[in-house]
């Protein structure tokens, strides 16, 4: 009856330390990619992947499905764009401002919503995000339909000129990697284990004396902060923050990425983001309505492979591994 999540996370938590080979391959791919693919596209992709990882932190860690994560992504994007463009914040401070605002928003959302679970949590976060959307529509500095455009990337620590797409890409890649490793680290930490235990059996954890709501709130705020980082990075990298960033469709998009890749798996959100962003790009080119395709994917995943791509691969790999000794004997 539960969501089919956390297959990989549970085993990943057992294996101590880092998968060095996987990390090396990952870094190699990140280094080589911009020579094969347009760097600005990759920047967008990595931002969405980081966003998906942040979202996944919450669902894999707390079993809570938020429908309002665009508020943090978009909120971070707006603040980073505004501070960089009109307050003259340098790159890294603009990012920090974005993250701080998303953290604050995440705290507010969390305090309001964390006591409810499941369907109601989803509905409340959706409604709250809608309130943020209306704010973005009304507040003067967000410039309504136009958004904040032509945001200067500036210099990293006053040293690296980020106007160069390659420089911007490598900074993005480094931040993405740090975020990804942070999620992995949180997962393996005692904090992550408590969260998983809460997800599996909340009443038991309450009776054991764990401040369950506080754990969930901390996780939610962390997820919001990382989402804000992704949004800020996107605003700096692509030079704009718009209503789309805080829109319901962005909340849905991130749910789709994580669902498609595999909820609760470490790599799933990245895979989901790659497929989803590439698909958007491709579909926009040939005029097939994107929302319809997204809707169809939703339906297919939920009816056919609820574990998501990575989740299914892991599942069948395990099954195959479990059967192997028997066939050998």
């Amino acid at each position: 009856m539960a969501l089919e999540i956390g297959e990989l996370s549970a085993s990943a938590a057992k294996t101590r330390g880092i998968d060095w080979l996987g990390l090396a391959v990952g870094i190699a791919i990140l280094v080589v990619a911009p020579f094969l693919i347009y760097p600005v596209f990759l920047i967008k992709l990595l931002c969405m992947a980081l966003f998906a990882c942040a979202f996944n932190l919450m669902i894999g860690g707390g079993g809570l499905l938020s429908f309002g994560h665009a508020a943090f992504f978009g909120g971070g994007a707006y603040i980073a764009a505004e501070t960089a463009k009109n307050f003259g914040f340098p790159f890294e401070f603009a990012l920090l401002a974005g993250v701080a605002s998303a953290t604050f928003l995440g705290f507010l959302f969390g305090v309001i919503a964390i006591r409810r679970q499941g369907l109601f949590f989803a509905m409340i976060t959706l409604a709250l995000a809608q309130a943020v959307y209306f704010l973005a529509l009304r507040l003067p500095f967000t410039h309504s339909e136009d958004g904040i455009q032509a945001v200067p990337r500036g210099w990293l620590f006053g040293v690296v000129d980020l106007k160069d797409n390659f420089a911007m890409y490598y900074v993005t890649a480094a931040i993405f990697l740090a975020g990804y490793l942070l999620v992995a680290r949180v997962w393996k930490s005692p904090f992550g284990q408590v969260l998983r235990a809460i997800k599996d059996n909340q009443p038991r954890m309450i009776s054991l004396g764990y401040p369950v709501d506080r754990y969930k709130l901390m996780n939610f705020v962390l997820s919001a902060a990382l989402s804000g980082l992704a949004g800020s990075l996107k605003a700096m990298g692509l030079g704009l923050a718009t209503l789309t960033d805080v829109d319901f469709t962005t909340s849905i998009a991130v749910v789709l990425m994580v669902l498609l890749g595999g909820m609760g798996t470490l790599l799933g959100p990245v895979v989901g983001a790659i497929i989803s962003v590439s698909m958007d790009d491709y579909l926009a080119g040939i005029g097939i309505p994107v929302p319809v395709v997204i809707g169809v994917i939703f339906v297919v995943i939920i009816l056919v492979f609820r574990r998501g791509i990575v989740g299914e691969v892991v599942h069948y790999w395990r099954k195959w591994q479990a059967r192997k000794p028997a066939t050998r004997a």
């Binding site: 009856m1 539960a2 969501l3 499905l65 499941g118 369907l119 989803a122 849905i252 749910v255 669902l259 929302p291 319809v292 997204i294 809707g295 169809v296 994917i297 939703f298 339906v299 939920i302 009816l303 609820r306």
Partner: peptide, 16 residues
């Protein structure tokens, strides 16, 4: 299934 799947499925139908 978990009730959230119903929400996600109908959300997909909404999008379509």
């Amino acid at each position: 299934l978990d009730h959230l799947y119903g929400l996600l499925l109908t959300l997909g139908l909404f999008q379509i």
